[in-house]
């Protein structure tokens, strides 16, 4: 729930800023004049029907998707289109994918240490020790020597979260992190994310898990047809949606 108790933070630079971001896939207007600002420690959950552009928006934040127009800033620094400087800024934003995307040929431990060692140039020993702590924090430290295919989906996704955390990111983006999981594994991943939110991590989450959204979000963003239609606290959004489309969307999930 929205219980951030530091009013001075509103004056600080937002961690993520999107200004007038536009993107087309051919004729389709997938992102339509998106403006978004995420403060430090804020948890923003993006929901909406499939095809609404929420995943594209999430991937746009660290420029895994190119945009046609608009500005994307991370901690006050504009993201360049490409090159080394873009890589440096990407390293500051963690990303957790629907399909986990762990490196198939590396052990769990190496999956977590590769970023710190190869991108942040941390000493190997230090990187390994921290990785083990992170794996313990997400509950998969027993699996450190295995390769991704030997783990369950839920375990793989927790490793992916540890891999993102190892970079000490300013924010983590979650692109439908539980959509590819069997129902019994969704809870273990959401638990890890709930703890992260409580620890003050800045998070942008695309999800279909409405109870989870209601519980951890500081702010809900409702998207449809490439536009942000509503931005509100979870309480307000779920009890008093302002737009017809949000009402329809909430009704459609309630009926199932």
């Amino acid at each position: 729930m929205a219980n951030k108790e530091n009013p001075t933070e509103t004056a600080a630079t937002p961690i993520i800023t999107l200004r007038h971001v536009d993107k087309h896939f051919g004729q389709l207007h997938v992102l339509n004049d998106i403006n978004l600002s995420v403060k430090k420690g804020e948890v923003v959950v993006i929901i909406g029907p499939s095809g609404s552009g929420k995943s594209t928006l999430c991937r746009t934040i660290n420029r895994l998707e190119t945009v046609d127009a608009g500005e994307i800033m991370i901690d006050g620094v504009a993201m360049p289109q490409e090159g080394r400087h873009l890589a440096e800024i990407r390293a500051q934003v963690g990303m957790v994918f629907q399909a986990f995307n762990l490196f198939a040929h590396k052990t769990i431990l190496d999956n977590v240490t590769i970023g710190p060692i190869d991108v942040l140039h941390k000493p190997k020993k230090e990187a390994r020790e921290e990785a083990m702590q992170l794996l313990k924090r997400v509950g998969v430290d027993q699996q450190a020597a295995k390769v991704p295919a030997q783990l369950s989906g839920g375990q793989q996704q927790r490793v992916a979260i540890a891999r993102a955390l190892a970079m000490h990111p300013k924010a983590i983006l979650f692109d439908e992190p539980t959509s590819a999981l069997d129902p019994e594994m969704i809870g273990e991943v959401l638990d890890v994310m709930t703890k992260l939110a409580a620890d003050g991590m800045t998070m942008v989450i695309v999800t279909h898990e409405m109870n989870f959204a209601r519980q951890v979000a500081d702010r809900i963003i409702f998207m449809d047809a490439g536009s942000i239609l509503e931005e509100n606290t979870p309480e307000q959004f779920f009890t008093h949606p302002r737009t017809q489309r949000a009402q329809d969307f909430l009704n459609s999930i309630k009926n199932h």
């Binding site: 660290n62 890589a87 990407r90 995307n101 762990l102 590769i114 970023g115």
Partner: peptide
């Protein structure tokens, strides 16, 4: 045979083209 997802994961860790080649693409 390497999924595009692994490449995206490498990019989001801040790896440059050559690091992705070295760490993810060539070994696999």
């Amino acid at each position: 045979t390497i999924g595009a997802g692994q490449i995206e994961a490498a990019r989001s860790l801040g790896m440059t083209f050559f690091k992705i080649i070295k760490n993810v693409v060539l070994p696999q």
